[in-house]
Amino acid sequence: MGTRLADAKFSCDINPYGVLYNPLSISAALREIILGKVYGKEDLFFFRDCWHSPMHHGDFSSLSADETLKKINERIARAHEWIFRSDCLLLTFGTSWVYEQKNTGRIVGNCHKLPGKEFILRRLTVDEIVSDYTSLLSGLLARNSGLKVILTVSPIRHARDGMHANQLSKATLLLAIDRLQAAFQESVFYFPAYELILDELRDYRFYAEDMVHPSDMAVQYVWERFSSACFSEETLQIIEESENIRRGLAHKPFHPDSEEYKRFLGQIVLKIDRLNGKYPYLDFQKERELCHIRLKI
């Protein structure tokens, strides 16, 4: 969904820690972003020839501690600039099962394949999640009163926990979100991605081959329902025109040096100019550069 929002020319910052699954790791990341935390080597650990952060996805890991810290700190600094000027915060809770480090008592965002004996696996309670987010959201809204928070529950099944344990996990998340909505009625909203996949589509045709992740068709369905629920008619028109430009640039010509293709690219540039004339805040820099490269300007 984040990629689709970016493709639709929304100004957004997507997963500054990489993908996180449980609510407390997400809230811990948000608190670090708010504070502008600067990571040091003491925040990392070395395992299987790489330096890792227990809070970050493996995309941030590398052979060098300095390189890992550089990627992490640059990303947090960028997210810190965004957090207080954002209009909307979208959070997806995936599971209420967490891995708690035995030696620190800290819930990790990523185990990085450390031995299971180093962790306690437990399920968060509704009260834990509600208490944590009541504190987090109260602080955020005090500094950005116009912020709208959209919470969702991921329809991805965490099958490794067992299907019954997965259902208990999702139920915990749904109950916690319901209580947060009641506590922050003007600012916190729920989008039913979980229910759309499980209750409206209700068919394994809408899952990928692993029978766990939604298929491309299901993702498109959720995107369309999200768009119709959250976007104005004018916004939907902008998205459609932006998508037409993106599809045009994705087209592979038979003769890229032909005059016909150059005229085609020229029409795309004109479309970008018209949209930017009406909505100057839309960022088409990459598309312009690509057109110019192909036109050899």
Rank of each mutant, 00 (worst) to 15 (best):
S138C: 06
H57K: 11
L151Q: 02
L137M: 12
L121C: 10
L265C: 06
A8Y: 05
Y204A: 07
G266W: 12
G266D: 13
R294E: 13
N144S: 15
F45G: 00
E260M: 07
R225M: 13
D210R: 11
K71Y: 09
A176N: 05
T134M: 13
E200N: 11
N73S: 10
I120T: 15
E241C: 04
W223S: 00
L175R: 11
F46G: 00
T92G: 04
L20A: 00
L147R: 06
S96L: 10
K286S: 12
S228C: 10
C230H: 14
F189K: 01
T134P: 01
H164R: 12
I245M: 08
H213S: 06
D178V: 05
H164V: 13
I272K: 07
L180N: 03
V38A: 11
G248P: 03
R157G: 01
D59S: 15
H158Q: 09
M217K: 14
G94C: 08
V219H: 10
I177A: 07
R225I: 09
Y281P: 02
Y21E: 07
C111R: 06
P256W: 12
V153F: 10
L282E: 06
A79Q: 09
A229S: 15
A79K: 04
Y207T: 03
A183R: 15
F264V: 04
E241L: 13
V222L: 07
Q267V: 10
P23S: 03
G36D: 11
S138N: 14
Y281L: 11
R294G: 02
R247D: 10
E81Y: 11
G40D: 14
Y279V: 05
Y21I: 02
E260I: 08
Y279S: 01
A165T: 04
I76P: 05
P214M: 04
C88P: 00
A182D: 14
I72C: 04
F60H: 02
M163G: 00
L173C: 08
R48C: 04
F189G: 03
D178M: 12
N166C: 05
D59A: 15
R160V: 12
V188D: 01
L282Y: 06
Q185G: 14
V19A: 09
D161R: 00
K271L: 07
R48Q: 15
T3Y: 12
R202Q: 11
L265V: 08
L282V: 09
R205Y: 06
R202N: 13
R75P: 01
L270P: 00
V219I: 15
Q267D: 13
S145P: 12
S131I: 07
C230T: 08
K271I: 01
E241A: 11
D13H: 14
E243Y: 03
D283V: 06
L137Y: 14
G94T: 02
Y207C: 05
L265Y: 07
L69Q: 06
T3E: 14
A193Q: 09
L180E: 07
I297A: 11
I268R: 04
F231E: 09
R48E: 13
V149I: 14
D66F: 07
L174Q: 13
C111Y: 04
I245Y: 07
I72T: 02
E100L: 01
S53W: 02
F45D: 01
T134R: 15
V130S: 09
K41F: 06
R85L: 08
C291T: 05
F119V: 04
Y207P: 02
R143N: 13
N144P: 03
A6C: 01
L201H: 08
R31N: 15
P253H: 11
L124G: 06
K9T: 07
Q167W: 03
C50Q: 14
